[in-house]
């Protein structure tokens, strides 16, 4: 498994994602991108849909990408990488390429959970050999913090504002990791920017499998979550500790929870540190809403434990 030292050595040998991009101060995305790319020793080709990462790293005539990279549109990164991978297979067969090349998508939650879900599902079903990494920051941050289906219940978003009648987003977030797992692909995982070695290990394990691999990475957006710029790691860590964002894997259908917090930290401890949930602590209704959020976190955690029990690695 890649240690910090190994990751750092690879970064020194060849920087795949350079500085000088225009992502916000405190954005967690570059950490995820670097860690994933440094966890793959083979040459890689990257595709990204429209989003923060794309806009901030590819402004003509500059680029932050030292690996081949392509952006086409918002909803089709999985289809684009399907084409790249298919071309690779043919050119290999024809003897025009001899190197082993790996294919990675970095996409936001909007381009994955919402507008890109169909293309993703199609690519998973067809079985292309690629790794899809969702940089999940839980809203359309690039366009100004609009709600997505990854946005948690009650969070304030510009299209789900905290109003007199409706306090933020009324709906629960979609459980995309389980939707992806239902495709029966060889490797599915959840990770968080707070646990970078865990992420690197997951990437390395994922790349042992032929076919589609998917990692959903909780990727703090201090701007959208309304937290301090230096909070990205702490925020993601607390999401894991409160069991809001479990770190787990589904390898060939076998569930494994990578980290089980020893103490039950209430989700409230995480919510209260973020501006997007501030209203819950001011409004008299807030207590009841926090209780609902906690109940859903508990329900999902219990369900995950049961899945591990029934379909675990040793089961």
């Amino acid at each position: 498994m890649p240690s910090i030292k190994v990751l750092a050595e690879r970064e020194e040998r060849g920087v795949r994602f350079t500085g000088g991009h225009t992502l916000c101060a405190g954005c967690a995305e570059p950490m995820v991108v670097r860690t994933v790319l440094n966890a793959i020793p083979d040459p890689v080709v990257v595709a990204s849909p429209t989003g923060c990462l794309e806009v901030a790293t590819s402004r003509f005539p500059g680029t932050a990408w030292n690996v081949p990279w392509i952006h086409v549109a918002f909803e089709n990164a999985a289809a684009v990488i399907s084409g790249v991978e298919a071309a690779y297979k043919v050119l290999r067969k024809k003897g025009l390429l001899d190197k082993r090349v790996r294919f990675v998508v970095f996409a936001g939650d909007g381009g994955t959970y919402d507008i890109g879900l169909q293309a993703l599902s199609g690519a998973l079903e067809r079985g292309h050999d690629f790794l899809y990494v969702c940089l999940n920051n839980e809203a359309y941050m690039n366009t100004g913090v609009q709600r997505s289906s990854a946005t948690p219940k009650c969070a304030a978003a510009t299209t789900a504002p905290v109003g007199e009648a409706i306090p933020g987003k009324p709906q629960e977030r979609k459980d995309l990791t389980e939707i992806v797992a239902a495709h029966g692909i060889p490797y599915v995982a959840q990770a968080a920017v707070s646990h970078l070695i865990d992420l690197a290990n997951k990437v390395e394990r994922a790349m042992n499998y032929e076919g589609p691999k998917f990692i959903n990475v909780l990727t703090t957006c201090p701007l959208g979550w309304r937290t301090p710029r230096d909070s990205a790691i702490q925020q993601a860590k607390q999401a894991v500790e409160t069991r809001y964002w479990p770190l787990y894997e589904v390898i060939e259908g076998r569930y494994k929870i990578n980290y089980k917090p020893k103490e039950h930290v209430p989700v409230e401890e995480w919510l209260k540190t973020q501006g997007r949930f501030r209203h819950l602590f001011r409004d008299p209704q807030g207590k009841e809403l926090i209780a609902q959020i906690q109940a859903e976190v508990d329900r999902r955690w219990e369900l995950l434990l049961k899945k591990e029990q029934c379909f675990g690695v040793g089961g």
């Binding site: 080709v45 089709n76 990488i81 084409g83 790249v84 991978e85 043919v90 067969k93 169909q118 293309a119």
Partner: peptide, 28 residues
Amino acid sequence: VRTELIPVESEHSALSACIGAAAAGGRV
């Protein structure tokens, strides 16, 4: 033929996959 056929889930993905394959260096 030695072609890779991608039986996509929509026309949007058909042309998107063609774009990926063409940019990758294939005739599509």
